[in-house]
């Protein structure tokens, strides 16, 4: 049941629109000053493009609309999780508990989605999952910001605690056979677009707006860039961190609901590798582990890149053991490339 969100791949499901190749052409036409300012982001787009081309050449199946939509759909869950992860990384933290948070909240509220349940009951379930996630995230934030535990330790401990408790709650029970309405959240389509893709896009819009256009976004970058200077500037560093961890877990819960719905089943060991998948995407996307650096475009590029590569390797029939190795290499290369940009800037 615990599938890797990047290898969950079933080709040829749906027919849709043409490929948005035009997007890339538009980008390259308005280069100039824009290019110099956004060289980092553009380099990622460039890498994506290369992988894209390689896959087109290597595998005739790749450019099929069905496959491309599937790539997007598969990428969307990790995209959601990576967005939450990126927030904690922006305040120079990390959140290793996102998978277990999903497991725990699911074990507590999964029954509300099973066949025969009414819509109000499902709403209770969804709200319940989000609330539990937010509470766990807040505790993470409190122990990092106020108790002063290293984020790695605090969230890893929380991961163990919540995972253990969800095993205890489940007693081996598997929730399955969800109502059709609930299944639509993760499995449905709107105008031919998979629902998870729509949800991911909405989330990215909201988070992108928050990071770039709100004072809270300013606070996140300030805290991640220099905690001491932020404190001296009258920014409530601890509060900012607590809210950030809360948001990370809340977003994980949101992703969890979608995942649950798409799988149409849930057990206590879901999402074991979610944190690492999310960290990989964020890291490849240029979210710095030192905090204060990175944006939503990077997250999108990172998650897409990771999924594309996996998808490509699947199409090429590369053994899954080798795939893991490749993924690791890509993470290292991505981070190294980032670092060289950072050096050049200074």
């Amino acid at each position: 049941m615990d599938k890797n969100p990047n290898t969950d791949f079933t080709p040829g499901e749906v027919a849709g629109q043409k490929i948005p190749l035009q997007k890339f052409k538009d980008l390259s036409s308005s280069v100039g000053k824009f290019f110099r300012e956004h060289i980092e982001e553009l380099s990622r787009v460039f890498v994506l493009l290369i992988i894209f081309l390689v896959l087109i050449i290597l595998s005739p199946n790749f450019v099929k609309v069905a496959n491309l939509l599937n790539v997007l759909r598969v990428a969307s869950l990790n995209l959601i999780l990576a967005t939450g992860m990126a927030l904690t990384m922006l305040v120079s933290g990390i959140d290793l508990s996102i998978g277990s948070v999903i497991a725990l909240s699911t074990m507590m509220f999964g029954q509300f989605f099973q066949e025969g349940r009414s819509i109000p009951e499902m709403v209770i379930g969804i709200v319940g999952i989000l609330v539990i996630s937010a509470v766990v995230g807040s505790i993470n934030g409190l122990s990092v910001a106020y108790v002063g535990l290293p984020a790695f330790i605090a969230t890893f401990a929380m991961d163990q605690i919540t995972r253990g408790y969800s095993y205890y709650l489940s007693k081996g029970i598997v929730f399955a056979r969800f109502t059709e309405v609930f299944q639509f959240i993760g499995g449905g389509y709107l105008f031919g677009i998979p629902m998870p893709v729509i949800f991911a896009a909405l989330l990215l819009l909201v988070v992108g707006f928050m990071l770039n256009k709100t004072t809270f976004g300013r606070r996140i970058y300030a805290v991640g860039s220099n905690k001491e200077a932020a404190k001296y500037s009258g920014i409530n560093v601890k509060q900012t961190m607590v809210i950030t961890y809360m948001l990370s877990a809340l977003i994980a819960g949101f992703g969890g609901i979608i995942y649950l719905s798409r799988l149409n089943a849930a057990e206590a060991n879901i999402g074991l590798d979610f944190p690492l998948q999310a960290i990989s995407a964020a890291a490849i996307g240029g979210i710095s582990f030192n905090g204060g650096k990175g944006n939503v475009f990077g997250i999108i590029a990172g998650a897409l890149l990771l999924t594309l590569v996996t998808n490509g390797m699947n199409l090429l029939g590369i053994d899954s053991d080798w795939q893991m190795g490749f993924t690791g290499l890509i993470i290292i290369i991505g981070v190294l490339v980032d670092r060289s940009y950072a050096k050049k800037k200074n």
Partner: peptide, 15 residues
Amino acid sequence: YGLSSDLPVKVNITH
């Protein structure tokens, strides 16, 4: 204590 060096001048000014 004074600056977020990796952030733009304008962002630092309004911090």
